[in-house]
């Protein structure tokens, strides 16, 4: 399935947690990196542990909380609960700050400790974001500037990379490879060719990562496109 991580556990319904990650993350004002970390924590956790054992939504909220700490973009549990609650119950009023609320908050904190133990405190990850941005700069300088200006390659690549966290791509591929694949797909989408590629000794994607091969790119692109098939299920 799209979830990756070796196919542990069943599929999630349309309101799957990773989707809620990105949505909730955006509404919390989180940066892409922090959301990416949260998603990675989540996916990694459910690689280790069967999906049925824990409430994925609680794990998702705790992942967000933990990611906020890891990426130094501290989030308040109250905000996480508020936004999540709003996501699951649209148009409902914010929760009252009663014992139920505090219990929920406590369980997030408890779950955070669980996550840390399950992940053996390895919660700092190499994300493709940094690589992608450097690749984009390099490419921008090689491309004609008007062609670059006209074509939203960077926005598309960034969007693709963010969306890739709906699945477990981040666990199965190297950050550099994901970055290149995302860039490749963005270039393809607009039919942009890297100038003098045919004459080059080394293809541009090989420059960015020596151990990258064309099949790997195709695999990642294929997985990435697969992620978007669940898009139609989201209302």
């Amino acid at each position: 399935q799209w979830r990756g991580g070796g196919g542990l556990g069943g599929t999630l319904d349309s309101k799957s947690s990773p989707t809620c990650f990105l949505l909730v993350g955006v509404k919390l004002g989180m940066q892409s990196i922090a959301i990416a970390t949260a998603c990675t924590i989540y996916h990694k956790f459910f690689c280790e542990i069967n999906l049925d054992a824990y409430d994925p939504y609680l794990v998702a909220m705790s992942s967000l909380y933990l990611a906020g700490k890891v990426e130094e973009q501290h989030l308040r549990t109250r905000d996480i609960i508020n936004v999540s609650n709003r996501y699951f119950h649209p148009d409902s009023e914010p929760l009252e700050l009663d014992s139920h609320f505090w219990a929920l908050r406590d369980s997030i904190v408890q779950c955070e400790l669980l996550l840390l133990r399950v992940l053996r405190f390895h919660v700092s990850f190499q994300h493709p974001h940094k690589y992608l941005l450097h690749y984009l700069i390099s490419l921008k300088n090689w491309l004609n500037r008007y062609s670059w200006q006209r074509t939203p390659i960077s926005v598309t690549a960034w969007a693709l990379l963010r969306d890739s966290y709906h699945g477990g791509l981040c666990l199965r591929f190297r950050a550099q490879h994901i970055a290149v694949a995302v860039l490749h797909l963005a270039l393809q989408a607009y039919g942009v060719e890297v100038p003098a590629e045919a004459e080059a000794e080394k293809p541009w994607w090989q420059v960015f990562s020596d151990d990258l091969t064309k099949p790997i790119i195709d695999n990642i692109v294929s997985d990435l496109i697969q992620i978007y098939t669940m898009d139609t299920e989201i209302p």
Partner: peptide
Amino acid sequence: FLLGKLGIDESNPPSLMRGL
């Protein structure tokens, strides 16, 4: 820094997901 240089708006992040 690079997001600014490339003109990608993080406060209004792009996505190709319809739900996002």
